[in-house]
Design a protein around this nucleic acid. Structure first.
Lengths: 347, 347
DNA sequence: ACCATGCCCGTTAACGATAACAGTGCTTGG
DNA sequence: CCAAGCACTGTTATCGTTAACGGGCATGGT
């Protein structure tokens, strides 16, 4: 009823109804002081009556800024990344930005197209969790907008990034297992080409060196891409004559696969893993997890990006690297009598 | 280096370099056949050299359509909604749309502002998981763009929607508990003002009627908003002299809270719940879950929306209601010897 | 009386891309 | 030899909004 064909009413329509020009409507909506009170009221009345909303597309074009930032994650179904996205959105909203989200589904070859699409939509900046280990395709985007990497560091690029204490967390969790007296620890890891995979292995190794134990190479399995692969690898380890005395997993999906394998095999082993996950505390396993605030990664990344947007004119600051701390959490076993530990304050 | 001040090179810049007009550049990039091969090559060369990308904002304005659809979910951190979002994105991408995502964090009062923001950004349609039970605020948005509701039906509105078989799923899962001989079943539910809360209670009730059992009103707890509330309610139930013989939970967070309570109380009870969740199969509980494809809700919602966008000129079809089927999955107990059931084919 | 000053509001010209139209030069047919 | 057609490319106007400027009108100071 309101418009003839296309979208909705324009400022001209509002102006016609309020008997002013479109410019005056623009002024009213911008809270420009140079408009009389009576005119202002007429304009607001017309806006209400037509259900008018400013066309953000036209504003973006005129004002030279879309008010959007782009986020590319590898797997939104993983709570880690959805929390990261929420952290980005929280800070973005705070600064008046909107978030355009893409999911690369861990396919590095899809990533360039996603990024180009976001740049086409005039995002003012990008936050990317890179799917692959190489990132040349980001160089093109960086010619247009600032880019911040999350969870993985730049390789051959000069950008800000936000990382987790991968090395430190893995070292500490492994140290817990060693301190408990387990020396034959299996390592179940994601692909070593990924930064997190390499760093967490380094931490695993460092913890061993500190206590003078040599890890058994036969117990190191890398390149596990999902829970199913981790489950198979674990079953395989359990079938060995010299089965490991404990397990270290480099992320939540791998931990879950390993736990499923233990369950199916009807056995149990002390397990330490990167990333906390739901119900980790009720599995009845001696479970040590490296916990950290995934939202915070998103928040920090958004802050770095928006800070850069604010100073895009001055001398560009050197690229920064922010680290989000990790914390080792020991989930007890049922008979360990440690019921009321730090269990779920809110979530 | 490329641009003087603002964003990036324009078609004029490309044209200048290729010694043609901006119009010709536009034609080349649109794959218009009426351009000579030599010109085409010069243009592409200039595009490459400048790293030129079409300004989607300007195109949207001129062409009258932003190529974006908006999605509002209540809680992206819940895997249910992140999967839904992935489903929306999958279909949106297939049809050349991009997804603008907002999270209402279950706060119904924030929702109107989020929706207005999306409309301002010229989304061509909206998919909304409404946070509250009333939806008047959607009427304004519907004057601008088509709206599809997901997971909850319209109340006082005429829109398409995609629902889960809430009633049927709850009835079937409850029936499983009853069939196993449990008659004193506690109901742990989300707020009854929400459609899902009411429907699932109705299903719970119907299953009882079918076998001629009267549910005990004292065992019905509604209005549980998170896992912590469910945990408290469960501990309270367990403390009763006449404790329930089984539990029915209306969503994944409530199930998790109940499970945590059981664990802390050092006891176990048969449990049925809506929504499947990670590791449900390794908890060692007699656990029955109502499983369904959250991605599919998003896909169907996106399809309904895009279908309506395609026919926006013709007679608007009557509002449609699509239902996504549920499936009851029984996760066994460890000594139940049902190891290789339908456990994680891919995910 | 006259110009300076402010207030309020309209006009014009962009932002970048593109549909519609208008050439330009070259070929073809009568 | 000119009209008509084709292949190719440039001009103009437009999408909705807003910065910059200009103009009418009233007030006030001299």
């Amino acid at each position: 009823m309101s418009a003839r064909r296309g979208s909705g009413p324009t400022m001209h329509d509002v102006g016609r109804l309020a008997e002013v020009s479109a410019m005056t409507v623009s002024r009213v909506l911008k809270n420009d002081p140079g408009v009389s009170e009576s005119t202002r009221e007429r304009v607001f009345a017309a806006v209400d009556r037509l259900g008018y909303r400013r066309n953000q597309t036209a504003r973006s074009l005129r004002l030279g800024g879309s008010g959007m930032i782009g986020l590319v994650v590898t797997n939104l179904a993983n709570p880690f990344y959805s929390r990261l996205a929420l952290g980005v959105q929280e800070v973005a909203t705070e600064y008046g930005f909107r978030m355009l989200l893409s999911n690369s589904a861990e396919q590095a070859d899809r990533e360039p197209a996603l990024i180009d699409g976001l740049v086409d939509h005039q995002v003012e900046g990008l936050i990317v969790v890179p799917a692959g280990s190489r990132q040349q395709h980001l160089a093109g985007a960086m010619r247009h907008v600032p880019v911040v990497l999350a969870a993985r560091p730049p390789a051959g690029l000069d950008t800000d990034c936000v990382l987790v204490e991968d090395f430190h967390g893995a070292r500490e969790a492994t140290a817990c297992l060693l301190a408990d007296g387990h020396t034959r620890i299996a390592f179940l890891g994601n692909p070593p080409a990924l930064y997190t995979g390499a760093e967490r292995l380094r931490g695993f190794w460092a913890a061993h060196e500190e206590v003078g134990v040599e890890p058994d190479h036969d117990l190191i399995r890398q390149g596990l891409v999902d829970a199913a692969a981790a489950e198979r690898a674990t079953l395989d380890l359990l079938a060995r004559a010299d089965r490991p005395a404990a397990l270290f997993c480099t992320n939540n999906r791998i931990s879950q696969g390993a736990i499923r394998a233990l369950y199916k095999a009807g056995t149990t082993l002390p397990l330490a893993g990167f990333d906390d996950f739901d119900l980790a505390d009720v599995l009845g396993l001696p479970l040590t997890v490296v916990s950290y605030d995934a939202d915070e990664i998103g928040r920090q990344a958004a802050r770095l990006l928006i800070d850069r947007l604010a100073h895009h004119d001055g001398a560009p600051p050197a690229s920064r690297r922010v680290t989000v701390p990790t914390r080792v959490v020991r989930h007890g076993v049922p008979d360990g009598a440690d019921g009321p530990d730090g269990a779920t304050p809110e979530a």
